[in-house]
Structures are given as structure tokens and as C-alpha cells.
Nucleic acid binder design. Structure first.
Lengths: 351, 351
DNA sequence: ATCGTTACCGGGAACGATTGCGTAAATAAA
DNA sequence: TTTATTTACGCAATCGTTCCCGGTAACGAT
């Protein structure tokens, strides 16, 4: 069963007017006399009239809804980003349809097709760790769909993008490890072709180089499911522990990997930070309650969401095709805590 | 700028047919000759035709989208429930519009009005901890909007509901505390009028009574923002610590309260579980990595979402008004860990 | 030759809203 | 008084789709 909403036609019939007059009265057109306006407005108010958004969408050829695709909403970074997106969206009369790729290319494609077939006005996306084929996104973009990338961006598609300074973030975190006396620093990262992986590992390599430490490729591991499957993190950690040059610290490049590595280390009874330092990207507010509290790189997720949505609004509401695109690069925050206090170093802070 | 999609009219013009014929050919009507069908289908396929969902919505007077309102998606319990909802929704061609009340009645109302004005076909909701006035929901329900409640349900509205056995969950958790030698057990809960608060506190009280422990009302605290504001949790804990009969354990009745209490206790340097045992409802997978690992009551959140969505589909797709409603009560799981191992008790398990 | 069937297809009215255009009456200007 | 102009409203097209009516052939049966 369905509940029937009041339409403009109902009002017209009830008041003996035409639908045009009612429509114009409701939109406060100058063509309508004050008396008629009052009549219509009062009737509409009293009977709780709301314009049918679907009819409007059909007429205006816009749905006033945007799509957001992230790998998972349970991830603190993404849920915070979504909060930022929503806050701007709602203020501008847009609603947000969220879908999750769960780090799978196939699911991302399905969601993408679903969203576009639901005629969204724009798209904000952080691609899955599996995604290497951007042809669908590219085609979508070329056909005129406004798209904003954030976090995991796609270099080959020219549009607005929002990221943190991944290079510097990883550089600083790695430097922090070195300064605390760690010598053999490993990295556990996402798939190699992912933008955040490339940029963060570049920062990691540079920091090592600048500190006179040779980069050991054996100490760089990739998790192709981004840590969604704990087993792959376990394998990465196992390989590190069995490496000829066993690492004494790990840098993890995303939320799921950070907690995943920590979980594995703990289950193996490896002492953090004494045996193994750990610093990673994370936006979870529980990391400070862990044992030991984790040193993390925290991204301004909410703000990133706000910016992404504002940029998308620019694209959607621009009259002419936008040709000038910007990539907003924000600063992240390194929060040093107990997981990176090495025995051999003089601790900077004690959590 | 907007990208123009292919319409049925375009196909009709290109093929020299009428829109009716094209429409029928696409829907494989018996009235259309195999040749024409083939012609239309091939043209549609080649030119990537997709029916306009908005036009369909207008015609069919249904949007094929449902609304979900929770207090926040960053909460593990809710994000898991949403995953369950989505999985069923997508399989049935529905999309999900999520919005967050952030435990505020006002925001819940705004979201509710927004969602209904966007003509959703149905609603799944867990009300905010502030919500006492259900008149809007009631009116919506009476006007025929299909609604399913989960977690925080509304007794006075008769429709499908999905919950865990809150009474038993709290009873078992409290009993667990008693069996571990805790004597003065406090409860930190949400607003008193909330369904989960009432049911869980009833279980708590009964467990104390059954174990011959008098219920001390001073040890029952309510957080009216559900722990969204840490300060209110801190106040509750402070009051407990200053109570004449200082508690030696706390039962928390929701995710945010559990981690909130733990955070406060830790910041005060109070030893858990020796000085203060802690058990609470939580679906976060990080609780086992905390120091100490938390004993939690875990709800089958994903499954709850699946069930809620299936029940909603029943309501939406029923031809006649549904009169028979069911309340699905699922079992929760008590996972005992380090936060409830008291000195004076013989520990059951060591995490 | 006429009728009834069957097979195919098109016209046009919905769904709910907006909007360009036309027009009647009322008023102002000539 | 005649002509312009303004005021205030209705008609009908439009958005993309479906579906109720038709209608027109072709064909076999009477």
C-alpha cells in the first residue's frame, strides 16, 4: 500500500484554479494576485503540500542526489569523510547515496553502474585497492558526469581531487621512526599502483635515503585487498619476520593495515614498541586506547569530505564545462604515542 | 553541464517506430514481432540504452529507494547493520539513503522530513537517544509509510521490529560480573525512556536480584547524548566514583558508552579489571586489542540489518495493508575477556 | 463476400511539476 | 472614444516511460 501525497492538481481542483496558477502562486510569481497567492499558500500549508521531487527531477533533468563510493563505511577515515560530505550536501539540498566497494573492483563497477543508472548528478569516489582499469570512470567523466576524487585518486582523469600530503606524511612518520632509533624499517602497504601507495612509499623511501639508510625492497609488502582480509596482512608480517634483515619497525599506509598489523603482532606475542615499532595511517579514535597506544598519521577526514563536496557542487552547478581543475592537498597530523618508543632511543613523549 | 542519455523516443525516431512499440519491444511484449524486437534490442544494446529511473518512478509512483536513519555510521554496530541492509536492498533493486541523527532529536526530524520529501518507499530506523516524541513517526506510519524499527524501537508504533534479547544480554553480562566476584555493579546507560535502556536495565536489575544483591539506584547513570559527548560520560563515571557505595564494576549498555567509560577510566588511571570491572555492549573489533581487552556483548548486527530489510520489503511489496507484525528477537553473544577478571575471583578465561 | 481472429503497431493520456505563450478584462494613455 | 498597456490567469507542451485504447492488415472460416 502506498500513501497518496497531495499534488498541485489536487490544489487546483479544490480551489477552482489551473495547475499553472497554483504552481506560480507557490513559487511566488509576480503574475499572480496577492489574494490568489494567499489562498493557495494557505491551502498548501494546511494540507501539508510538498512538491514531488521525482516530478521535479524529471522536469529539471537532475536528481539532486550524488553518489559516494568508498571501500567501507566502517572505516573511521571514510565515515568521517562521509560526515563532511553530508554536512555540505544537506545544506545545499542534495542527498547522498553511499555505496561500498569493499575493496573489490567488481563491486565498485556494480555500484558505479547502479548509481549512474539511478541518475545521480555527481560522484565522489575513493577507488578500491583492486581498481586498475579506469575506462568506465573515464567514459563517465567524458560523457560529462561531475566527479571528485579523494584519498585514492586517479591520475589519468582530470578533475578536482582532494588528498593529504601523502609524501610528506609518510616522510615524517618514517623520519620519526629513524629518530627514535629504528634502523630496519618495513612498509606494509596497499596495491602498488594505488595513488596513496605510490605517494606514501615515495615519502618512505625518501626519508630512509635522507637518513642514510638503504631501501630494502624485501621490507616493502603489498596487501592487494587493503587489509580487508586479515590473512593477507598476516602473510605480509610473516614474510617480514622471516626476512634476512628482520625489521624493527613497520610503517602501515592505511587504517585497516594499521590495526591489522597491530593485531597480528599482538597475536604473535611480539612486543610493540620494543621488538617492533609501529606507525600507521589511521583515523580511529580507539588507537590511543590500545596497548600500547598507537602512533598514527591522522588525516583531516571531515574537512576533506567538506572540500570534496564543495568542489563537486562547483562542477554540478557550473553553467559551462569546467576546464580548470584543482587538487587540494591538506596537511596530516603525526600523533606520536607508545608504539614507536624504542628501547635504544631517547623517547620524545611517553603516552 | 549535463550528459544527455538515450531515451526511448530517440530509439523510436531512429528506427521509425513509435515510442509504444519501442517500450513494448524492450519489455519483450508478445504484441511485438520478433524482427522488431531484435531491431530495437540491438539498437538499445549498441547505444547503451538505460531506462530513466526517474521517469519510471514518476510513472510507478515508487522511488525504489529506502531511507535508513541511525545515530551515526561511525559506530561499528550501525555500520554493520547498514551492511546487512544494503546487501539485501541491492539484491532487490533498491538503493539506500543513509542519514545520521547524531543522537539529536532535531536532526532526526530534519532527516526524516528530508527523506520523506524525497519520496522514499520505506524506512528503517533506530531512534536517537533524545527522541521521546514519536508523533511524526506515528503520523508517517498512519499515512501508510512502511517502517521497520531495529535496536532502539518504539513500542507504541505497531510494525515490524528487530532487536536482540536485551533483557537476557544484560542479565547474562551482569551475572558474569557477579560470578567473577564483583559486588557493587554500576550501570551506565542511555536515556531512561529508550527501549534498549529499559530492557537492558531490567535484565541488569533482575540479575542482581537473582543473585541476592540489592539494586542501588545511585549506581545507575544515564547519558542523554548516548556518549556522543565524552563529558557526560566523564560526569557519570565521576559520580560513580564518588558514590557512598563505590562500584567495583560497570555495565555499559551501548557501544559509545563502553569505549567512553573505558577511555575515562584509563585517563583516571583506574585499573581495569582490578579496581573496576567493565563489560558493555559493543560491536567494535578493536575492543579485543585494548588494554585490557574488553569483555563485550556483541550483537549480530549484519544479520539484524538483513532481517530488517527483508521485513521492510514485505511491507513495501505487499498488495494489501499488512496487519500482522512481528518482532524478531535475536541472541547476542557474551565474549569474556580481560576487563572482567577480578582479583577476588577465579578467572574463567585469560585473554 | 462477409465475418471473426490473430498479429502488430501507433495515438495519446497519464504520472507531477514548470513555463512560454495566448488572452480576457481592467486600467491607463492618446 | 480608441488604442496601449498592465494584470491575472489558463492552455498546452515538456521531461521519459507505460499502457489503455484503438486501428489495420492478413488470413481462414463460413
Amino acid at each position: 500500500m502506498r500513501f497518496e501525497a497531495l499534488t498541485i492538481k489536487d490544489i487546483a481542483k479544490a480551489l477552482g484554479l489551473s495547475t499553472s496558477t497554483v504552481s506560480r502562486a507557490l513559487r511566488d510569481s509576480y503574475e499572480i494576485s496577492p489574494e490568489t497567492k494567499k489562498l493557495v499558500l494557505e491551502y498548501a500549508e494546511k494540507n501539508n503540500y510538498h512538491p514531488n521531487p521525482i516530478a521535479l527531477s524529471l522536469k529539471e533533468r537532475r536528481s539532486r542526489s550524488i553518489g559516494v563510493i568508498v571501500c567501507e563505511i566502517a572505516n573511521s577515515f571514510f565515515s568521517q569523510t562521509i560526515n563532511g560530505i553530508e554536512s555540505i550536501a544537506y545544506n545545499n539540498g542534495y542527498n547522498v547515496i553511499i555505496s561500498q566497494s569493499r575493496e573489490s573492483f567488481d563491486r565498485e563497477m556494480i555500484n558505479l553502474q547502479y548509481l549512474t543508472s539511478r541518475s545521480i548528478d555527481g560522484l565522489i569516489i575513493s577507488v578500491s585497492t583492486e581498481t586498475r582499469d579506469f575506462s568506465f570512470l573515464k567514459e563517465l567523466h567524458e560523457r560529462g558526469m561531475p566527479i571528485v576524487f579523494f584519498d585514492r585518486i586517479v591520475d589519468e582523469i582530470e578533475t578536482h581531487k582532494v588528498i593529504v600530503d601523502n609524501y610528506k606524511s609518510a616522510y615524517d612518520a618514517t623520519t620519526h621512526l629513524v629518530k627514535n632509533g629504528y634502523q630496519h624499517i618495513a612498509a606494509v602497504s596497499n596495491a602498488a599502483y594505488l595513488s596513496i601507495t605510490k605517494e606514501r612509499l615515495a615519502g618512505y623511501r625518501a626519508a630512509l635515503a635522507d637518513n642514510g639508510i638503504a631501501v630494502n625492497e624485501d621490507l616493502i609488502k603489498h596487501c592487494h585487498h587493503g587489509g580487508m582480509i586479515l590473512v593477507e596482512v598476516e602473510e605480509a608480517v610473516n614474510e617480514l619476520l622471516q626476512a634476512p634483515e628482520k625489521p624493527d619497525a613497520i610503517l602501515t599506509t592505511s587504517d585497516k593495515l594499521t590495526t591489522g598489523c597491530f593485531r597480528i603482532l599482538k597475536s604473535k606475542g611480539i612486543n610493540v614498541p620494543a621488538e617492533m615499532g609501529l606507525v600507521g595511517f589511521s583515523n580511529s579514535d580507539l588507537t590511543e586506547l590500545l596497548d600500547p597506544p598507537l602512533t598514527i598519521i591522522k588525516q583531516p577526514a571531515f574537512e576533506m569530505g567538506e572540500i570534496a563536496m564543495n568542489l563537486l557542487l562547483q562542477l554540478i552547478e557550473s553553467k559551462r564545462p569546467v576546464k580548470e581543475f584543482e587538487t587540494r592537498v591538506l596537511a596530516s597530523e603525526l600523533i606520536t604515542r607508545g608504539s614507536t618508543v624504542a628501547k635504544k632511543a631517547k623517547p620524545k613523549t611517553l603516552a
